[in-house]
Amino acid sequence: MAELAIVLQQIVAGLALGSIYGLVALGYNFIFNAVGIVNLAQGDFVMLGGYIYGGTLTLLLGLPFLPALLLTAIAMAIFGIVSQRIVYYPLRDAHPRMVMLSTIALGIFLKNISLIAWGTYPVSVSGLFGQRGLRIAGVSILYQYIFILVCVIILLAIQQYFFKKTTLGKSMRAVAQDRLAAMLMGIDAYKMIAITFAYSSTLAAIGGVLLAPVFMVSQVLANVGLKGFAACVIGGWGDITGAVIGGLVVGLVEVFSASYISSVYKDAIVFAILIGFLIFRPQGILGRATEVSL
């Protein structure tokens, strides 16, 4: 019985972590679907969102949760448009690899800027639920984790609907697949790309807001970007459901490999699996998506 509770707790922990990675993966996929590039600063966007929400709006200005969330989302949307203008637009006709390099530079810049702006102390905020949680049959779940999972499912549904059903979403996909053809359809490709960056930055902002109460906000938070990246590869690039499934897989692998193989090398195990996928199954678990050119 005790053993069962422990295994259940492991599964809960894996799913909780996994939904966080899935959330980050959704942000990656959004830009990938729209521009065909991987924004390697996505993790740093999450960190920045966390800092704006936790460090500035909550701790400094004392705003309650909802206004803080809203303002963070708006600030990050604007930031997304600005960074698109600086990082993507000048390189729009270059190889996607060049854009990815410039996103790496943006990530480094953001880490350093946040160090200057918010200092070295991790920012700790309680969010809506603090450290409160459920306890059922020896398994404990933080409310915050349930909240994250619910948010991820809602965002997944919204994103799925958005890309499949709305004209805006479809035209974003069209721009990603063939920018010239999309422009010949009358689509203002650069406006679409700006919207794409704005939305994916907003997703990152939500990620930062949701993560702040469980992981605190520090420069290390940007590392969730790597796990989100792994989730995208495992789930298949561009596949929205795949991203969330990939996230859950990464979360479960991390928890179980830490329990039964090595807690010290759990990240190495995740990345070994990532490399395995890149070599043997680059289209991801679901196998529907196209390959990303890196």
Binding site: I6, Q9, V214, V220, S257, A258, S259, S263, D267
Partner: peptide, 20 residues
């Protein structure tokens, strides 16, 4: 006896091993 790395955020796996 369990271990973790600097920068780790989630310790569930190790803490559950300890609980055992």
């Amino acid at each position: 006896v369990e271990a973790h790395n600097t920068g780790d955020k989630d310790f569930t796996a190790q803490l559950l091993n300890i609980r055992r």
